[in-house]
Design a protein around this nucleic acid. Structure first.
Length: 752
DNA sequence: TGAACCTGTCATCCT
DNA sequence: GGAGGATGACAGGTT
């Protein structure tokens, strides 16, 4: 039974998805029974997403990264929480066992009108899958008990009785191989551990048929007895069995009836979902145990309704067909929504009508004629809406891609890095494409006061060029501070030249030698003179360098830390060099020294600030204050130094802010893609679920029709399905009660 | 030449 | 209250 339960669970989940897509809140409470694939589909992605984002958040926090309130991680986290809550709402379908049990019976009794049913049109696998329905897990403990007992008979009324249940067995004496196959399949599927099913072959249809309104008690297991009854019904004309007939149709005193008999009818509302939403009031006004399959598709009332229904220990089936011409008006009082029970005869015409009705349904017209692959009326108008949404999403996606342009799209594709990778890239060697490297080069011409290249700074005399910590030539593992001397720095100009060779290849300017560069540095003239004379020795040791470890966590490209002018020039693209030549025309510029210096650099040079802008910017506040206190600086110098520090930090902040924006954009695009995929997956599941529901409904109709075609009253007249209901009560009793009697009993119960 | 984009800077708010 | 982070807005440069 385990696999049966599994498949049944899948069916429930499908229904849950369906209902959720319809905007209904369902609760299965079957998470422990969800197959892995379903977990992945329903809970897995979102759960995994949330967990991953939790993990990301935790990692980010553990790594010392600050978590901004608008952080992508947080945003993703809350988004994931919403998604998780939404996904969890899918598993809250609580289907009354009786209804699903009825479906099971119906599935195995797909009897066409006037004859025994042919094999279902579904593929065999689907057929078996649909047949392997186990009762919903309303009570987990109970379900576990059933599972432990290995009861195949859990098909019927599991919520109350604990006796082993037997599946319905119909073995008509009338040699009909199809029917035998049907019931044998049912037996095999529903009761694999109980193969020896008693085959009832005799039945007396004329005995104790109570049509006057009294309940007809079945003194055996509900469905087995029903099966027996059906078994006898088919050949009833040949071998009537008074005892069985009596057992099945014996009408007990209404007072003896269990209080919670659930009339259950195979409503066509399985097809027509929209009216069911409007019939909530009817359901609410009806008896609490009035059930039909429409209820499964009801909206918010579904949960309460189903919760209440699950407490029932028995159920009844109100079987009637549309062809009986019975309207629901006279039956609605019995808790059966007969108004919606316009059961169409299982013929093509009615099926078409049904489809039309469903299509005409405003909210839940599921069927669309062109989508059914199996020829079933399963296409859905709401699916059309979904498809429209998908189409809109697709167009939006196209628009976005077009709006972003190929460059942006390519960049988005290239920059699909993770958080960790991001920081590695940001702190490591600049791996940007040449164009972006060029942008980085451009920054050296900006007005930013953050050009803290020590080659331009007063400290340039002891700092090797190209060794700036965040320049494009620094390595990821060792963001060496720029004030490290050429000897100390592992990133000397030789390494810079290697990178430059990669970039410019045979550029003639590559012939610039280190000596030439040093000459240029000397020409530039450090404002502060020899740094070794200006800076305390402790600024050069590793102890000081360690104070800059926090820089490693700056998530951005410090491209403003440009290398020496000569090196920069060698790295420049031709256009940039042209631009540089253009700047040469400006007065005051000296290509050999201040050409690439930014405003603050020049100001610092003009005011003879004795330390570099990078030091001004990146020193911790305490060290910075100590540094300022170490020198006798004028107010103007102090103001400039503080402005340089403020602008420098703000520049870094701006870069981080923009990068965050970009990351948010990437994250949102990824989220949209994931959601789109998830949505399409849910649509596919919904389509399949609805198709299964249609098939089950048809089988149920056939089953009802077949059952009542073989039930006869005391006078040997065939029972009217619209006037009687099958009720499955406790103690495995199946009764046939008239609608009037059922009404009376309910009234009595209401009075109590 | 104008649009789009990038980047630095300022102002402001907030911690 | 200062320092600094975050961010919108603006301006200038570049393509």
């Amino acid at each position: 039974m385990l696999y049966v339960k599994k498949d049944f669970t899948e069916g429930l989940i499908q229904i849950a998805i369906l209902l959720s897509l319809c905007g209904l809140r369902v609760d299965l409470g079957m998470e422990p029974y969800l197959p892995h694939s379903w977990h992945d589909m329903i809970l897995g992605p979102t759960s995994a997403l949330t967990q991953n984002q939790f993990h990301n958040l935790r990692n980010r926090l553990e790594e010392g990264h600050s978590l901004h309130p608008k952080s992508v991680d947080l945003e993703q986290f809350f988004t994931s929480r919403r998604l998780l809550g939404w996904a969890r709402s899918l598993d809250r379908l609580q289907v009354p066992p009786v209804e699903l049990e009825t479906w099971v019976v119906q599935q195995e009794l797909e009897l066409p009108p006037g004859g025994f049913p042919a094999r279902p049109s579904l593929p065999e696998t689907e057929d078996i899958e649909a047949d392997r329905i186990v009762p919903p897990v309303e009570n987990q403990a109970e379900d576990e008990e059933l599972s432990d007992d290995g009861r195949s008979g859990a098909l019927l009324c599991q919520t109350s009785h604990t006796e082993p249940l037997q599946p319905p067995v119909l073995v008509p004496e009338n040699p009909c191989s199809d029917l035998e196959l049907q019931w044998q399949d049912l037996l095999d599927i529903l009761q694999p551990e109980n193969p020896n099913v008693e085959m009832m072959t005799s039945f007396n249809p004329t005995l104790d048929i109570g049509t006057s309104g009294a309940f007809q008690d079945v003194e055996s297991d509900p469905l087995p007895q029903l099966s027996k009854s059906l078994d006898c019904v088919v050949p009833q004309a040949h071998q009537p069995d008074p005892h069985l007939q009596h057992g099945l149709l014996d009408t007990p005193n209404p007072s003896e009836l269990p209080p919670d008999l659930l009339p259950l009818t195979p409503s066509t509302e399985l097809d027509d979902h929209s009216p069911t939403l409007n019939r909530r009031a009817t359901l609410r006004n009806s008896a609490p145990y009035s059930l039909n399959y429409t209820d499964l598709l009801a909206d918010n009332d579904l949960e309460d309704f189903v919760m209440g229904a699950n407490n029932f220990t028995s159920f009844s089936m109100n079987l009637f067909t549309q062809e009986d011409g019975m309207e629901s008006e006279n039956l609605s009082d019995f808790g059966v929504n007969f108004q919606s029970c316009d059961l169409p005869a299982p013929n093509i015409q009615q099926k078409n009508n049904l489809t039309q009705d469903l299509l005409a349904s405003p909210s839940c017209a599921f069927l669309l004629p062109e989508e059914d692959e199996d020829g079933l009326p399963s296409p859905l108008t709401d699916l059309l809406e979904d498809l429209n949404i998908l189409e809109g999403m697709r167009l939006l996606d196209i628009a976005l891609e077009e709006g972003l342009g190929p460059d942006m799209a390519a960049r988005l594709g290239e920059e699909a890095y993770t958080d960790g990778e991001t920081f590695q890239q940001e702190t490591g060697r600049d791996q940007r494409p040449p164009s972006q490297k060029k942008d980085g080069q451009d920054e050296m011409d900006s007005d930013s006061g953050l050009s803290v290249d020590f080659s331009h700074s007063p400290a340039s005399s002891y700092v090797s060029e190209g060794s700036t910590p965040y320049s494009s030539t620094s390595t990821p593992s060792t963001p060496s501070p720029s004030w490290v001397s050429a000897v100390e720095s592992p990133f000397s100009e030789d390494e810079d030249r290697e990178d430059e060779d990669d970039i410019l290849g045979s550029d003639m300017e590559l012939e610039v030698t280190v000596k030439q560069e040093k000459l240029e540095e000397e020409e530039m003239g450090a404002v502060g003179g020899d740094v070794k004379q200006v800076f305390p020795a402790n600024y050069m040791d590793h102890k000081l360098l360690h104070s800059f470890n926090w820089l490693e966590h700056i998530g951005h490209d410090h491209t403003y830390n440009q290398p020496l002018l000569s090196t920069s020039r060698r790295k420049m693209a031709p256009k940039q060099r042209r631009s540089l030549r253009h700047h040469k025309a400006k007065p005051y510029h000296n290509i050999s020294d201040t050409e690439n210096w930014n405003r603050d650099e020049r100001r610092a040079q003009a005011l003879k600030i004795p330390f570099s802008n990078e030091l001004i910017i990146h020193l911790p506040v305490e060290d910075f204050n100590d540094l300022l206190s170490s020198y006798q600086l004028t107010d103007e110098q102090l103001t400039l130094v503080r402005d340089i520090r403020r602008r420098g930090k703000n520049k870094i902040a701006a870069q981080n802010c923009r990068k965050r924006k970009h990351d948010v954009l990437l994250s949102l695009e990824s989220e949209v893609s994931d959601l789109r995929h998830h949505f399409s997956q849910l649509l596919r599941e919904k389509r399949e679920t609805l198709r299964h529901i249609q098939e089950m409904k048809q089988r149920l109709r056939a089953l009802h029709k077949e059952i009542f075609s073989h039930l006869k009253d005391e006078d040997g007249r065939q029972l009217n399905a619209t006037e009687h209901v099958l009720q499955f009560g406790p103690n495995d009793r199946v009764t046939v009660a008239s609608v009037a009697a059922d009404k009376n009993s309910k009234k009595q119960k209401d009075k109590k």
